[in-house]
């Protein structure tokens, strides 16, 4: 589902963010990407959505070499990938339902589809009763669930999560992890960047560790280490 071959990313100021990274992630896997700040986790995720281009190496997503993807096809790539971030990235002026609907609206889904899927997905993440609230009226955990709902409403094959529990307390983080786990069990490939030891240790999933841009460990059913 995701495969990188010898990917190196050097920024303009000669900072090497990733060095010869080769990772192969199968369909339906749940993978933690761990490592200290600045180890290249976020860069790796940004490469998968073509927000950045690698300096060298090849990246395959869903069987396609995305390093050779034409500019105008990038949106289609992103429709196959749901993204969740530490800061939720919700629109403060839109209600919970509108925030989720927005993701469908801008890719041209019909009103019928939106009217059906939005309540469905919000029910799934446990926010069926908060649909007409504004994001500010929700707790951090609830806001993150809205953003997961938005990432997943289009049923992408891949879900990328960059520090999704970074702003949440441990209890809330566990709820978020349960939700991601549920999504993973629908067959969605999940790649989650984190430096939350407790979560990685509790989940016992595949762990890829980065250090200063290089993969230093790739372990099935690993712990944070």
């Amino acid at each position: 589902m995701i495969r990188t071959i010898g990917v190196t990313k050097t920024y303009k100021n000669n900072v090497v963010a990733l060095r010869d990274v080769s990772i192969d992630i199968q369909r339906g896997e749940f993978v933690f990407l761990v490592g200290p700040s600045g180890s290249g986790k976020s860069t790796f995720i940004r490469l998968l959505t073509r927000e950045e281009d690698p300096t060298s190496g090849e990246i395959y997503v869903a069987g396609k070499n995305i390093t050779q993807l034409a500019h105008w096809k990038v949106p289609m790539l992103r429709r196959n990938i749901g993204c969740v971030f530490q800061d939720f990235k919700l629109l403060p002026t839109k209600t919970v339902a509108e925030n989720v609907a927005f993701a469908l609206e801008v890719i041209g889904r019909s009103r019928d589809v939106i009217a059906r899927r939005v309540p469905e997905i919000l029910e799934l993440v446990g926010l069926g009763d908060k649909m007409s609230n504004l994001p500010d009226e929700l707790s951090g955990g609830e806001q993150q669930r809205v953003s997961i709902a938005r990432a997943f409403v289009n049923r992408p094959q891949i879900l990328l999560a960059d520090e999704p529990t970074g702003n949440l307390d441990p209890g809330t983080s566990v709820d978020i992890m349960k939700l991601l786990d549920r999504i993973n069990r629908t067959g969605t490939t999940v790649l989650m960047a984190t430096h939350d030891h407790a979560i990685v240790d509790a989940m016992l999933r595949r762990v890829v560790e980065l250090d200063r841009g290089s993969v230093i460990r790739d372990q099935e059913r690993g712990v944070y280490g």
Binding site: W72, P75, M76, L77, R78, C83, K89, L91, I107
Partner: peptide
């Protein structure tokens, strides 16, 4: 912000 999210979820440039 809105445009950033539009891109994130795969809105085409023309759409934006």
């Amino acid at each position: 912000r809105e445009i950033g999210i539009m891109r994130l979820v795969g809105a085409t440039n023309w759409f934006i």
